[in-house]
Design a protein around this nucleic acid. Sequence first.
DNA 1: TTGTAAGCGTTATCAC
DNA 2: GTGATAACGCTTACAA
Lengths: 334, 334
Amino acid sequence: MSTIKDVAKLAGVSVATVSRVLNDYDNVRPETVKAVQKAIEELDYQPNFLGRTLRRLETMKILVVVPTISNQFYSRVLKGIQLAAQSAGYHTMLAITNSDADIEQEHINMARRKLVDGVIFLHTTMDAAALTEFAAACPAVSACELVGGASISTVSIDDFRAALDGVRFLLQNGCRRIAFVSAGDLYNSSRCRRMGYERALAEAGIRPEEALILDEGFTFNAGKRAAERLLQLDRLPDAVFATSDSTAIGVISALAQHGIRVCEDISVMGFDNNQIAEYYLPPLTTISQPQFDIGHKAFELLHDKINNRSCEDQHILLPHRLEYRSSVKIQQST
Amino acid sequence: MSTIKDVAKLAGVSVATVSRVLNDYDNVRPETVKAVQKAIEELDYQPNFLGRTLRRLETMKILVVVPTISNQFYSRVLKGIQLAAQSAGYHTMLAITNSDADIEQEHINMARRKLVDGVIFLHTTMDAAALTEFAAACPAVSACELVGGASISTVSIDDFRAALDGVRFLLQNGCRRIAFVSAGDLYNSSRCRRMGYERALAEAGIRPEEALILDEGFTFNAGKRAAERLLQLDRLPDAVFATSDSTAIGVISALAQHGIRVCEDISVMGFDNNQIAEYYLPPLTTISQPQFDIGHKAFELLHDKINNRSCEDQHILLPHRLEYRSSVKIQQST
DNA sequence: TTGTAAGCGTTATCAC
DNA sequence: GTGATAACGCTTACAA
């Protein structure tokens, strides 16, 4: 493995000159550049970036903390991050935590140990105090799942408003008893969405029923469990508002096993607008999140932090959109 | 930001001693350890791993090259890799290439530049010669999508055999005209699976029909396009063998829009056994791949390469399994 | 058991 | 334009 010294020797110049050539400085004589390039070619020299990294004390890497990538929601946000990062010359590292605090800590230590220049949290197990402290110690941005009260830049949709819009839509189409399936108090987004749900019901003069509010999680299985609980009630609700597409599909699939047809017998609405929402049978009405844009914007904010530009925290809210498909029964206006 | 020198000064010892404490050497007096730990605490010292990395010339990082993570197949393999890597003390970097050769090159240069200790390819745009050369220059393993003729360790299922089993199953259940939807010659797996398909047909004395062999890709949309082409034929086939669950779902969803019911009117079979195969309506018969194990094994092989153990290439084939669900019509034995 | 000092491969700051 | 040379923060012979 040849080093910059070998190149310098072969080209008959100093290492400083080789470094200049490598970094495209313009104060090198063209003939010298040629000679250096020839030596690089001959030795098949590849610069060892660890040297540069140590010298410059910057890694050009960022870390993204995600609870899982099995849900297409996160993989799309991640894609937005990666494309933005890439065009700024950064590489992306991934920490899949499964929402385990120890695993998360172990990974974010990389930041403290200078192995990455910054961190984007798509979810974190830390509380407001810990996250605030972390963000003070190194560049960080929080996206998707925020932590109430933490001092850190954020990017997300307005979860309260999104749920409000979704439930209002169901109400407008004649649903009165609406179940709410979410991940419970663990997630800030779930809390906000639940508030939106309750506000919408209140607007319509409906008192929420305890039995219709189910905290099961964001997965397919969570939806399945929720459906099984609903099936034990005396009477099924008119509609189910699920806080992820996966959950909605779990609900639909479990109901189908009991001969209950979505749309005809019950309306179901998802959240996120993953690709499967379009391809499921029936296709899913859902709240669309701008996943790619969330990721892109999150990197932008992080990049600003890394470069010390605009050091005050920003809180970006991106627009959601209701995507109507046939899993919800439309009431003909009379 | 304090360094090892600051700690040494405060503790009244040399940097070597601090380093020994940091690395848990046992030849340090207990009192000295205490003193160093106290200094570390007081300064809130975090070791800068860039120094260690440069000195040891190992990064404890690996790079995983994937075409996409939107397909759950890859995210599960990745999970297997990450868990194995983690327990060996390695961090995982992700290169999402979208099958773009330039993007891939740009990323794998990280390996040549010593920013990662090894690379796992879940897919590559390189040909056999290029991949062989790469694997000779730095530790690398190829999994899932292999490159025929390249000298590199591999982990995958037996794609030929898997397709053979799948198509045989359809034939046994009375299907004669079976469409084959895959990603075409671009993917080695598709070539192998197609050979399995043709062998199964041959065994049954059936000549393959050109019009039933569709190369569209691995995505939902690919399935949709394939279905639209099938719908233009005089007569629909008895069954569709799709080489990914996403494709199968694309097919089913597009057929449904034309009032064609899967199982009753036509059988459809997928590949991979992603979670959605279980939750789709109808649930999908599919070939199950041990995604997690593939990832786990791929890391093991890479780890061996990095440690120079068992330097000869290995070629691991892991078992597939046919998962029967209701998207295929079963023929009652007479 | 501890300290000294020579690296690891670069880049940056001086001189010249 | 170019060359010495001192960093960057750490690990590790070797010496003491």
